[in-house]
Nucleic acid binder design. Structure first.
Lengths: 234, 234
DNA sequence: GAACTAAAAGCGAATGCTCGTTTTCTATTC
DNA sequence: GAATAGAAAACGAGCATTCGCTTTTAGTTC
């Protein structure tokens, strides 16, 4: 709590918590509209209505629409970072991490909304340099987390030491980006199917010399329809 | 007096080629401005100026800005499809295809421009259902081409038969999408570095039981000095 | 092949509308 | 009682698009 002097001229200042709550209220409203209609097709009036406020109120907490967009985009990247970080912290093999990540994204609160916002933020960053810088540094943190995990994997003998951790991290990041993209277009895309395929690829199943003589994907090795593998192979 | 009946059916019609050329001229101009400033920050006047025409002329060939955006987005997806198809037609192992694809994208005419347009089109498709449908079918063709290649790989013994070709194709598509995204943010990102890392991942180098006892990366490239890569500037 | 005609191509000022933002005023808070 | 929080109306800019007009083009006639 801030101390307030009862006798000085300053007085009715809203608590910091109150202001933060208002900002969140506005951002939540913006997230709904932006996810549904896009950053540019959703008007400020839409956001204002959704928040149940007035223009004056909204503009008290945000200087401009761009500032709201930036906040939304940043929050969206934060969601990605947190999800990836959390998954890495389970200290499981990378093949398993990759297998489970899509599901982790799918089961987030407001998953659909968050993914749509992320994809739009990527496009938006191309036309808004200030946002681009912010987003890049956010993405770099994700990449760095992945890179450190890969480096650790090299120390532990999980990962080939000849692999470049920075570049390999980009590949794992691409798997995440690809999932988010494909899922926003096809919300019915099954996260586990995608995760399993990613895991298979990481296990070298698209490359003969590696999968041959391997239990491969457990379960029935016959059909293409669904290789329902249990990831517990190891 | 004059007999006018003889003039009844004259048609000074410009050749179809001419009309097509005009459309191309407008689309080329739009591509330049859209890539630089984004679909929504670039105004029609910008496109019109870039094309060296007048509003009336442009609106003779396109009914609306959205129609131009759709045409640009479609063309952009076509570029991706053509590049992937071409690469697949070399009939090389998938690990090599994946290794070379990034370079193929980087060396296209107007590569930078095309990639930026593609990324923006992805975002745009979320707010424009008509465009979304068009783009999805374009992307499906890419996925299908990849899927067929994977199925063929299973017949040839290159790919584990237990792998689901549809889902695996999504993973390869994700590698492409990830490259395009990451390259638009960091144009200095080296295509070959990315490709090599992708190839390594496909060979199972992130997974102990597979890389052990393997010659590792194709080209010479880095030995295990894992750190040298420049994540470089921001 | 020159003159003529009608339609298409092209121009650019004008239009109307939407949107982000500002400003003014009232209500609330301590 | 003082100043902020919030509501509501209004503003001005910028936008996509249109429309009335002029210029160009291609086919027809002689």
């Amino acid at each position: 709590m801030k101390e307030r002097s009862l006798y000085s001229e300053e007085v009715p200042k809203v608590s910091d918590n109150y202001a933060a709550a208002r900002r969140d209220q506005i951002l939540a409203a913006a997230a709904v509209r932006f996810a549904r209609e896009g950053f540019h097709r959703a008007s400020m009036q839409d956001v204002i209505d959704e928040a149940g406020l007035s223009p004056g109120a909204v503009y008290r907490y945000f200087r401009s629409k761009d500032e709201i967009i930036a906040a939304i985009a940043l929050r969206s990247m934060g969601m990605i970072e947190a999800t990836v970080r959390e998954s890495l912290e389970t200290h499981r093999p990378l093949t398993e991490v990759v297998a489970e990540l899509p599901r982790a994204f799918s089961t987030l609160d407001h998953a659909e909304e968050s993914m749509r916002l992320a994809v739009q933020a990527w496009g938006e960053s191309l036309r808004n340099p200030a946002l681009a810088a912010t987003m890049q540094s956010a993405l770099n943190q994700v990449r760095e987390a992945l890179q450190q995990r890969i480096t650790q994997g090299q120390i532990d003998g999980e990962v080939d030491p000849a692999v470049n951790p920075d570049h390999a991290a980009r590949i794992l990041l691409a798997l995440v980006q690809g999932f988010l993209l494909q899922h926003t277009w096809e919300p019915t895309l099954d996260a586990d199917d995608y995760g399993r395929a990613a895991s298979d690829v990481l296990r070298g199943h698209l490359n003969k010399r590696h999968w041959a003589g391997e239990p491969s994907t457990i379960g029935s090795a016959s059909t293409h329809t669904a290789s329902s593998s249990s990831s517990s192979a190891d």
